[in-house]
């Protein structure tokens, strides 16, 4: 099977459904993570004051507090990645949670594979020492980050520095949601607040250069209302 979590990273699961908690615990523990559970917002706060986990899995519908509020509250003093679980009809809540600081989301029902992939990706991002795969190749597109080279079907593609920086942050976070503000921070630096429309113009140009069908992006996908996702599937 795949490589286990191995580092013994700790994960706090906040969900009021016992079946979901049990399933998540089983899935994550068999992959080497330490799992703690909380049934409510109050319990979660207690657990978080006792010890800080490496990642939080948060269900948006909780009995005692609105998931979006809890997410916002935790963001004021916690820097760990938050993975939000939601059902399909909670799109607006999901977007609100992502805007207030959640890092990614999973729509229920999800497969164990999807969950583990998201968890790994988020933990990889938060552990600062690890640099991601410097070379990525997906269906004819090769991105060589250290060499600042991008090849499409073997031909070199010329990107502007901003386009390359955007692509870099997306590739480093492959298959993960990258919000507009994360892109802005990574490309323009945390001191500038760049308008989403400006980023979109650069993204649109980037897509024309690297996508197989320039008008139909299948690599750099739009996450409505929140950001982008570089899809490797």
């Amino acid at each position: 099977m795949s490589t286990p979590g191995a580092h013994g990273e700790s994960i706090l699961v906040i969900d009021d459904e016992v079946q979901i908690r049990r399933a998540l615990t089983t899935i994550l523990e068999t992959r080497g993570y330490e799992v703690a559970c909380a049934e409510s917002g109050a319990e979660a706060i207690d657990a978080l004051t006792a010890s800080t986990p490496d990642l939080i899995v948060l269900d948006l519908s909780l009995p005692d507090i609105d998931g979006v509020d809890l997410c916002e509250q935790m963001r004021t003093w916690l820097d760990v990645p938050i993975l939000v679980l939601s059902v399909r009809s909670e799109e607006t809540d999901k977007i609100a949670a992502l805007e207030t600081g959640a890092d990614d989301y999973l729509t229920k029902p999800f497969s164990a594979g999807e969950l583990v992939a998201r968890v790994r990706a988020l933990l990889r991002r938060s552990s600062k020492d690890v640099t991601t795969t410097p070379l990525m190749t997906v269906e004819g597109l090769t991105v060589d980050l250290p060499a600042h080279r991008v090849l499409k079907d073997g031909t070199e593609v010329t990107l502007t520095p901003i386009e390359f920086s955007i692509l870099a942050v997306l590739v480093q976070n492959a298959d993960r949601l990258v919000t507009w503000s994360q892109i802005s921070d990574a490309v323009w630096g945390p001191d500038y607040l760049v308008d989403v429309r400006t980023i979109r113009v650069h993204v649109s140009n980037l897509r024309k250069k690297i996508e197989r069908h320039p008008a139909v992006p299948c690599r750099v996908l739009t996450e409505p209302g929140v950001g982008l996702r570089f899809d490797t599937h």
Binding site: R197, A215, V216, P217, C218, T222, P224, D231, H233
Partner: peptide, 15 residues
Amino acid sequence: PIDFEVGELVGAVVS
């Protein structure tokens, strides 16, 4: 409503 290009919509659906 949000701003988007129709290609983004098609790409998101097909992918």
